[in-house]
Simulated scan of single mutants.
Amino acid sequence: MVDRPNKPSAISPVGSAAAPQPSVDISSDNSRITARLPTGESVEVLLYGATVISWKNGNGAENLWLSEKAVLDGSKAVRGGIPVVFPVFGPPPKDHATSALPQHGFARNNRWEYLGKSSSESAPLSKSGAGDDTVKLDFGLYSSALPEDARKKWPYDFGLVYSVTLGREGLQTMMNVRNEGKEPFEFQVLMHTYLKVSDISKTTITGLLSAPYIDKVLNATAHTESNHAISITGEVDRVYHSLKQSTTSVLEDGKPRYDVVRDNLDDTVLWNPWTEKAAGMGDFYPKDGFKHMVCVEVGAVNSWTKLDGGESWEGGQLIKSLL
């Protein structure tokens, strides 16, 4: 892993070997991994795209929005949850090495390998006897495992390790990218998180004041955020970049609901399709589902990250559920 100064603390595991331990189950069709903590928190990851499709609190409350018509059979990217975008965000530029790839790249459209579970060896032990408080699931995607067509469109040797850590205080998702070849390559990465909210009309987003952003709804024009608390009253598709504050928060009725903390990522996409865009997406259902979700997507997408041969990069997020 890459050692970086001043990175936010990971979810701190505590536990006792004699106490109840987290459980990890592989589905009978080998399509998904489910992890549960002794205190009831759970996460479910589809191996297709390494897509997190469920994350629940200890009381069973779901934190992620998943379309009722999301395709989960590995035939297309999942609508909802946390899809992974790599190595390009949005439609690929015509003058870039990713130009032949589909929108949002190939990571969300390929099956990943489950590498196993683990926990921190340096974590302090719990004196309460409550058992381990975290479980980390690792998933891998490598250039050698890509279909030949994808290899031709982006012929670089790479290795991705995506770590999903479930804790009592939240969910952490981290991506490690390594250039396994000799030729340098450039990439973008994003975690397309669909957060579930009770009512979008009573939801506000904070932590983006004074941040520059590109507004894709307004012909990709440049703006600066002037609102401390952003309300969503129509289609929103903004790429906030060069962010100085690490945390973007989602509030419901003025009360904190989620904190999204970026780690080595400077950009955040804020997205809600609203009425017309939702109606045009066949896998978005119910059609008024936009009233109960908001995408706060951390990433490095406003520019390109370059890796020379043998180099690696790591970045991700910690989402805290504040119910």
Rank of each mutant, 00 (worst) to 15 (best):
S122M: 06
N109I: 09
K117M: 11
A130Q: 15
T98N: 03
L115G: 11
L160Q: 05
D95T: 09
W154A: 02
Y142I: 12
P93W: 08
W112R: 09
P124A: 15
W154Q: 04
S119L: 10
F89T: 08
G129V: 04
A100D: 15
K136N: 04
A130W: 03
K152N: 08
P93D: 14
E113R: 11
P147T: 10
W112S: 09
G140C: 13
D149M: 05
P91Q: 11
L125C: 06
G116C: 09
Q103H: 02
L125I: 07
Q103I: 10
D149V: 04
A150P: 00
S128H: 04
K127C: 06
K153R: 14
L146S: 05
S144R: 12
D132T: 02
T134H: 08
P102G: 14
P92F: 03
A97L: 11
E113M: 08
P102K: 15
L137R: 02
S143A: 13
K136G: 00
G159R: 13
Y114K: 06
S143R: 01
D138K: 02
F106E: 05
L101E: 05
S128W: 09
K153F: 04
S99N: 10
R111T: 15
L137T: 03
L137A: 09
S163L: 05
G105D: 06
P147V: 14
K153C: 04
S163Q: 09
T134C: 15
S120R: 10
N109H: 06
H104V: 07
A123F: 01
V164G: 00
A123T: 03
A107L: 09
S122C: 05
G105Q: 02
A97T: 10
A100F: 06
L125V: 08
D157S: 13
G159Y: 08
L137P: 00
Y142M: 15
G90D: 09
A107C: 12
Y114M: 03
A145S: 15
F106I: 14
A100K: 15
G129N: 07
